[in-house]
Design a protein around this nucleic acid. Structure first.
Lengths: 260, 260
DNA sequence: AGGAACCCTTGATCCAGATCAGGGCAGGCA
DNA sequence: TGCCTGCCCTGATCTGGATCAAGGGTTCCT
């Protein structure tokens, strides 16, 4: 069963899946174009859309509010929809038959989820925090791409950036030690988030430690020990469980052994 | 220094780089369109080109024959050209400051090398065997994409496939054991090569063992031990140093623990 | 308030694969 | 012909991170 069924039939959703909080689709969209006011309008694929395409997209898409730990797409399921993250955070992962999981990435506002090469999704996507996503049929995306080369160009650019990030992750997993992996991860995240009021860079880690470990190819125990070591060395401070301040970014850079 | 300089000025090439054997470009192309008869005409990006675009591409591109162990693009160098592999095999790798190398992939006929997100190449590409590649200016590719959406679509498709492969590699590096990695690698390669005359699948491994190790995140000693274990178990036979026959693909599938 | 279910952290021990070391073989060159 | 340089294989040992085990904190539910 794909999540989309649950999204549209809230009452019938199995209790094992946390309930959708709200859905707004064609029925709820009394305004001319819900997309025009969307928080993700200027991000991801939608940034490549001229205003005149919005009404059709509004008609074809649905905005879905999700609690945390809710699957959005399932690895191996028929890939009939694509999703844009409006807010929140999701984890994308692949699973081996015996249950081992590898997180391939985290998706935030503007990221597109569910693009598939073949007929089925290549990974599972699940919310880490309460999130809002926008679902559109795959066919709508294809039609938009045919009509608007800019959309295809934008998708190519986004895919290329993702590919580059995936190759960086291959380097991390294939070559780097535990400390190097964690330092690289913290620095990469800090580049995408704004610094604290006092100017020092920080990172927000809403996901459990076991997920960060599954992303970095480490066990949560190892992650915990590495963070402690970095904290003892004065490179970071753990402000709360989900917020880390980078006190010595230069030291982190040095231990991250970034690619030339 | 980028390789392109060496390619066009053979006599001036430093001796440390094995010499280019032959170059055919505008000066050598007396025929109407060299591209029309190219071995890679039906592959990769060129497959998306209508015949009427070929003369311009022929005029803008150069075919380059290379000995083995010759760099084609260098990580960090200005990304002014893109290359299509016509024949042979190249390895693509990233390097850490201390010299550790991670091979992110091997490129064969039809593969495109040198696409960059930013201004510089994200990896080094170097021939593993004697190879023929075709070089074109990045601007030519951009012009073709603007004029022919099909080219952009093909590039998007190729990039998406590469991204999917990269995510499989992330799963391999993050989760799998040494035996599982080697079994997955052999099976993946066997799917792309034709079986032996007797019908059994086989793989051709022209690259040194240390390169296969650098691709799988293993030391060559470990790779050697794993291959011996698989051979003792009757799953494979090492016919020559660079050719392995898969005697029991089902057993390999089982040990590869492929993703669901 | 009690307690159940998670997380996170730390300590002790284990092991898969890295590292170190040495020997054999094939191809290239003087 | 004989040396030399890579590459490959195998054995011995080491170690970084996994695994096993246990305690404490927080949140949510009853």
């Amino acid at each position: 069963m794909t999540f989309s069924v649950a999204a549209e039939t809230i009452a019938a959703a199995p209790v094992s899946i946390p309930a959708t909080v709200a859905v707004s689709g064609p029925a709820a969209a009394t305004e001319k174009s819900r997309c025009a006011g969307c928080a993700a309008r200027s991000k991801g694929l939608c940034a490549a859309l001229p205003a005149e395409e919005l009404p059709e997209l509004t008609a074809a898409s649905r905005t879905i509010n999700l609690l945390s730990s809710t699957p959005v797409v399932l690895e191996g399921a028929e890939a009939d929809s694509v999703f844009t993250v409006v807010s929140g955070m999701l984890k994308l992962y692949k699973t081996l038959p015996d249950g081992r999981q590898q997180i391939t990435g985290f998706a935030t506002a503007g990221d597109v989820i569910g693009l598939a090469v073949g007929e089925v999704y290549a990974y599972t996507a699940e919310t880490v925090t309460a999130s809002t996503v926008c679902r559109a049929p795959r066919t709508t995306l294809h039609r938009l791409m045919e009509r608007r080369p800019a959309v295809q160009g934008r998708l190519l650019a986004m895919t290329s950036v993702e590919l580059s990030a995936a190759q960086d992750q291959i380097l991390l997993l294939g070559c780097k030690t535990a400390v190097e992996r964690v330092a690289s991860f913290l620095l990469a995240l800090s580049r995408r988030s704004r610094p604290l009021p006092d100017g020092s860079p920080s990172v927000f880690l809403p996901m459990p430690k076991v997920d960060i470990g599954a992303y970095l190819g480490l066990r949560p125990e190892t992650l915990s020990r590495v963070l402690r070591k970095l904290e003892d060395a004065g490179a970071i401070t753990r402000l709360t469980n989900d917020r880390i301040r980078l006190d010595d970014a230069a030291a982190l850079e040095a231990t991250a052994t970034l690619a030339a």
